[in-house]
Design a protein around this nucleic acid. Structure first.
Lengths: 154, 154
DNA sequence: ACTTGACTTCAAGTTGACTTGAAGTAGTAG
DNA sequence: CTACTACTTCAAGTCAACTTGAAGTCAAGT
């Protein structure tokens, strides 16, 4: 059993974050000692899991969905596989970006704008921009709002 | 010369975003026709460049720094190379994550918590969490705030 | 000349993920 | 028994990157 400061120390997350996570249902404390939360040690791996999900680009809401409220994470395997695919696509995009950046760094064309590689990059960038639902925040915000997102004014 | 709606249509970005970008100094309009902004066509590649930077995980502030206010982007090549390296590190992390996710999706260990691969994943996640300045928003927020970020309450 | 509709400004709102601050409480050391 | 300190709650603030809304303006078509 851990109190919040121990958990904070061991996990590296500030106490405020841990309280927040509890508040939004990502972790649970198993009781109180006086006022103080008491955590089971298994929240540590769970926190790691959460950090993992974030690193992979998922929102806390998505992560909560993936982890469920069970004690044992019991992650949906199809979900996981789908997420892996999503990460993979992200990686491909980033690879293209990296290549483009490297090229741009060494390119001697008079202006980047005239460099074909740079132009290819731009196309990639535009594709990304145009892509909906790629797991970033605006996309989610839009989907919640219901999507008449292009019209600037009525 | 383009007006904002043409630019919006061609770039795929809503007009509000374009106004916002101008406001924060990412793009410039070269004049007005009546009230209406008039843009030179070269803001199109510039917008692509901005989208590119975002895709690579940079903040608009960073991108503004990279692009400078010159008309010709004139990107600092060392900067670019450094960014490419950063993207590369990000890719490596994501690759590990993807591998881990895939494994987790097919892993038959009684609980993920007991699976060694999953544990490795967690270590990666914790490393990521511990790493400062990895180019995401909190990191930036911290660096601006000046960093006494661990102390929960004085 | 007048209407129209696409633009304009400016302030305020939104979202996610937290942090910060004030004010209160309780286990523990002395 | 009293201080002390580390916790507690709750509301409010922050940050980036935009979006939304209200109210105004102006160029062009009829």
């Amino acid at each position: 059993m851990l109190d919040i400061s121990e958990l904070s120390r061991k996990s590296g997350a500030p106490a405020s974050k841990l309280r927040y996570y509890e508040e939004v249902g990502l972790i649970r404390s198993v009781g109180r000692k006086g006022l103080r939360r008491v955590f089971e040690p298994d929240v540590l791996p769970r926190l790691a899991l959460i950090a993992l999900g974030q690193a992979a680009g998922f929102s806390l809401a998505e992560i909560r969905g993936m982890l469920g409220q069970e004690k044992e994470p019991s992650i949906d395997r199809d979900m996981l596989a789908a997420k892996a695919d999503a990460v993979d696509r992200h990686i491909e995009e980033l690879s293209a970006l990296r290549d483009g950046l490297r090229h741009a760094a060494t390119c001697t064309a008079p202006s980047h704008l005239e460099c074909p590689t740079f132009q290819r990059l731009m196309r990639i960038a535009l594709v990304r921009q145009g892509a909906r639902g790629r797991g970033r925040k605006q996309a989610r915000a839009m989907s919640q709002k219901g999507g008449t997102a292009r019209g600037d004014n009525t």
